[in-house]
């Protein structure tokens, strides 16, 4: 197999780049994502989730049914910040990564 082939087309991450981080102990899609940007492109991993699972499977022998899904966050598909911000005073903000931050006087604690 030619390991220069692309696995994540949005971020142009190749098979060998993923192989390398799996060799360093990455076990899940999210581990690989944090180390390589794989899955962080415009499609938000919709194209590469299964391809990456196959690489993990081939490299570690882990059955596909034991390779968890990548964390899927809001927004489910790209949206303009302008649209997201509109008239949202009457309801709480959409659950997002920002909810994980605790604020103190407008600053991150």
């Amino acid at each position: 197999m030619d390991k220069t082939k692309i696995i994540c087309r949005c971020e142009e991450i190749s098979y060998e780049e993923i192989e390398e981080v799996v060799g360093h102990g990455a076990k899940t899609f999210d581990d690989i994502k944090r180390l390589t940007r794989c899955g962080m492109g415009p499609c938000q991993a919709k194209t590469c989730t299964n391809l990456v699972a196959m690489v993990i499977h081939e490299q570690t022998g882990t059955p596909l049914s034991e390779i968890p899904l990548p964390r899927i966050r809001m927004p489910l598909s790209p949206i303009k910040l302008e649209t997201l911000a509109t008239n949202s005073t009457t309801f709480s903000t959409v659950k997002s990564v920002l909810d994980e931050l605790e604020l103190e006087e407008g600053r991150v604690k």
Binding site: M74, K80, T83, L84, T86, F91, S92, T93, V94, K95
Partner: peptide
């Protein structure tokens, strides 16, 4: 595009 804390869903019409 996502779900709100109170269980309602966030819909966008792009505006």
């Amino acid at each position: 595009i996502g779900i709100y804390a109170n269980g309602s869903l966030g819909i966008t019409d792009e505006l």
